[in-house]
Write a protein that binds this DNA or RNA. Sequence first.
DNA 1: AAATTTCTAGTTTTT
DNA 2: CTAGAAATTT
Length: 769
Amino acid sequence: MQNLLHNLNPEQLAAVTLPAQSALILAGAGSGKTRVLTTRIAWLIQTGQVSPAGILAVTFTNKAAKEMLTRLSAMLPINTRGMWIGTFHGLCNRLLRTHYRDAALPQTFQILDSQDQLSAIKRLLKAFNIDDEKFPAKSVMYFINGAKDAGLRAQDVEAHDPAERKMVELYGLYDDQCQREGVVDFAELLLRSYELLSRNQPLREHYQQRFKHILVDEFQDTNDLQYKWLKLLSGQGQSQARSALFAVGDDDQSIYAFRGANVGNMRAFEQEFNVQNLIKLEQNYRSHGHILDSANMLISNNSKRLGKNLRTDAGHGEQVRVYEASSDLQEAQWIIEETKNLIAEGASRSEVAVLYRSNAQSRVIEHALFSAGIPYHVYGGLRYFQRAEVKHAIAYLQLMDNPHNDSAFLRVVNFPTRGIGVRTIENLQGAAQEYGISLYAAVPYMSGKAGSSLSGFVKMIEGMRFETQQMALPELVRVVLEGSTLLSHYAAEKEGADRVENLEQMVSAATQFVSEEGYGQGAPAHLGPRADAQAGAPIVNADGIEILDADAPLATVMSPLSAFLSHASLEAGDNQAQAGQDALQMMTVHSAKGLEFDNVFITGLEEGLFPHESSSKEDGGVEEERRLMYVAITRARKRLYMCFSQTRMLHGQTRYNMKSRFFDELPEESLKWLSPKVQSHWFANKKSAWDDAPLNLGSDNALAQRMAQKAGGGSGWRIGESVSHGKFGEGVIVNIEGSGANCRAQINFGSHGMKVLDLSVAKLERLGR
DNA sequence: AAATTTCTAGTTTTT
DNA sequence: CTAGAAATTT
């Protein structure tokens, strides 16, 4: 036990050893949050306060869950099985699999990822002849998910106008469709298990008694439904003893409001759970002083905070280096120069991160890195299980497990092509709708040539199902890849090599899955739960309720195939760093959350970009952007660079932005401006930018014309120049029209908006930057 | 059914 | 500008 607790600072120690009551831990960036969480669990078990089966730990990503598990098994000699550690969605999946009958789901229900959900909605809209101009699939999806995340079914949503009424109606129809097909979307996993627990008293009480301690990571990212779910499971507000909810979070790092996260849950938790134990972890073990000072001062500009200030023992370190570029190309060039310097000083490339607000910004930088021959890795983009060919293979597997999944049916019924065209499908859909059955089930009702090609497809699926009956999962996958002719189809394609490789990889993914999830290597993949499940389960309590086996629960509850399909939907595959690769790391600020690097570049710090213009419209938007900036700053250990550009290509046209307001919110003494007056000489700097620009100006004449235009018709002002106005404050000249006395300039004053001013009248001052 | 053209939107993202 | 979807042609 000494071992467990030693090296904890006083606050961490206090948090770890709190009594079994509700607790809120405000954990600043780099304050050892994960450590506290895992040590808390280990301590609870080691001191005999709770058995592993009494622990429920919730995270937001699979990666975090995995890390927690790894760290725990390193700390504890006992096995970690029996503990429930996972994402909200993973845990709900487990719950619903176990109690599928009570939840009114088919045993082999399948999970839609967002792509699947969107196409399911598109299909619904088509089937009901909805005007997709008025009701775009995306907004319908947004509406449905919003309602579900708030814990509302269609009949619970209040509609105020006809359009909203239609939305609600569509929501209801969508749920019907999902139920018919035996599929659930992500939000449904949460809502369905919430409803299951709230309606089924014995079941609820069983779990409430079982989980003595519930621990939640990244609490600031919970949405309303997740909070309600926690409240229900912890038995809050009920007379009998309730479980202790231990919530860890940082309100300053809440950057997911746009997808339903509600920071307010922290305050609500504090009040509703009558939290007596509030501990702030403010000691930062990551960043040097100047970096931390910057973060602290910046975030102090936010009004709604629970209050927290990071401190460090690491000393001031170096100042934050700030650079103003004339163009996005030059910005990229500067990043390359500085990176080269860093590497020359001995930094490893994987310890250099380039952060940006939006993905579009990566192109220019990537291009420059490529030209400079610096290896880099861009985060984001398509994950393994989202690739088209993999999704196709998954669809075949889904059909074998649950033939009523119409999405899966439509995806592969004619892929690879087997002469089943649009007409045939339309007829089939008609029949299915008429009888209220799935497409698969409607196939026998089809006659003629179309009917026989369709039943050929069905026979193929049935055949594969029969053939693989006794097979283990990896073997089954192999058979399906070949039997579906997916492999031969891609092998015949010119550019299909990568796709073939991805498909091949699925067999090893299945192998790995089977061994990690505790299925016997040879266990038949789709014959219900684990073969030896009888030995340890199911447990039935006094009320006759089936209770989960504490060991390897998934394996006792669902077949390897079903489990693998869940896994494919819930864990789309690696998107995070591939360790060991010595490449510069590029990512959005959002995906940098939770990571840290010795050297960090924050790029594109311009008004409109960061803070992003569309977020300044909604209230609280700028505060969220500021938190985003806070996250960005606190990623850096030793060196932090910030840069912005006067000119930027966006949506095919050049934009002139002001430097970000965030610069005004940073401590001057922590900043080192590297480019005080580079930009007074516009022409001098323009040259390099023009050389690389993909502009084909045709002739010198055109170039001269363009430059004259840019220079502003001899008005003395030029486009891109920073100016100051008595009423509107700082701005940037975006355009100049006319000449002489009629010369007017369009100026972007940021928060004061875009103005067109008469240059002969307006009192403008040149900004000496 | 594949190839080609036209249109259109365009923060952030995990499950 | 430019990727991805939708529409249209071959």
